[in-house]
Design a protein around this nucleic acid. Sequence first.
DNA 1: CCGATTATTGATTGACGAGTCAATTAATGG
DNA 2: CCATTAATTGACTCGTCAATCAATAATCGG
Lengths: 201, 201
Amino acid sequence: MAKEIERRRDLIAATIREIGAQGTLNVTVGQIAKRAGVSPGLAFHYFGDKEALFLAAMRWILRDYGLQVRAALAAADGPAERLDAVIEANFAESHFRDGAVAAWLNFYVLAQRSTEAARLLALYHRRLHSNLVHDLRPLAGAEAAAGIAVRLAALIDGLYLRFALARDAVEAAPAAAEVRAALSIELAAVAAPTPRSAARS
Amino acid sequence: MAKEIERRRDLIAATIREIGAQGTLNVTVGQIAKRAGVSPGLAFHYFGDKEALFLAAMRWILRDYGLQVRAALAAADGPAERLDAVIEANFAESHFRDGAVAAWLNFYVLAQRSTEAARLLALYHRRLHSNLVHDLRPLAGAEAAAGIAVRLAALIDGLYLRFALARDAVEAAPAAAEVRAALSIELAAVAAPTPRSAARS
DNA sequence: CCGATTATTGATTGACGAGTCAATTAATGG
DNA sequence: CCATTAATTGACTCGTCAATCAATAATCGG
């Protein structure tokens, strides 16, 4: 019984690693199974088909992300600290390990075919956005918070992309620093009256 | 002779459209050929293999992007206008048409396997960065320019990602507006003394 | 027109991979 | 121990697809 859970975990981990290693969703179930140390048939036995295995891997990554964010938030005190925690969690080491970034990037591609993948990704987007807005509100006001959150979220994703490409650079810290810099600049702009070029659209 | 150029263009256009339509690089040469209205054999005749066809499509998109940026820059006057032109060009309608965004996203994935694709993508990154830095320098000073450029470039890419997912939302304008907003905030922060939270790192 | 060159076809091959399944092995409980 | 059930295997099928190639059609120069 517990065997099943263990095997599923093994296969999911192997899936993420294999996608990371090959940099594509074009991995065979055979390769995944081999990496997990089981026969190909077992993967089908537990997951039914390849897509289900991919989706399980994606859920795994998202669940891991969610846990990490919640843990970081629990330890933080006050909006400023909480924002920092969210940023930190988004660039946590575990998101850059074992080809997780490459897997993540490929899930973006998967989301264009699979409505379930799209749903999961939308969930992530909403979570990130609402986390940011929640703690931006007390610092920047209700009106400015939404806009800042959109930009910070996109900035986070964009920096992710860069890292997905530069596989050698394993340092996540500079990325987080850029986001923090953008945050402090955004907050400063709210505090001070906009000096001229306010494109309020 | 001119026939060859025409066929190559047809096939490249069909490749981009097909990748866009399917949302993946898992398209068959047969499907591409059919879309281009030729036989599968012809694609191999002109490009050798599938990967070469993909790379040609990627070069095409990048070339188009480069042309558009250069054209926009030529019409702009002064750093502020030029920055606006770069932003505008990055969200030009042609980059959102015929599944170009989906193709773009898939090229990110391709870049993890193909060194040539990685090279092309790095080229794009460098171009964007240096365009931004060039015109940020007179407005923000040499020191601040680089950091701002990194953040704006990542922001642009991140907003692209969102659009790649939300296929229904074909409006690029709001994305460009976000980048412009970030730009004006960044410039304001340079003008005013940083109020407290300067994480100069 | 004709012959030569170039463009284009589409049938074919060979490899590969998803998914199935009957058979084998391990675990479990009495 | 044995019997029953669960876990696991890996050979097999069947479809698909990249790439090839011999054959056909178009083009063109003279």
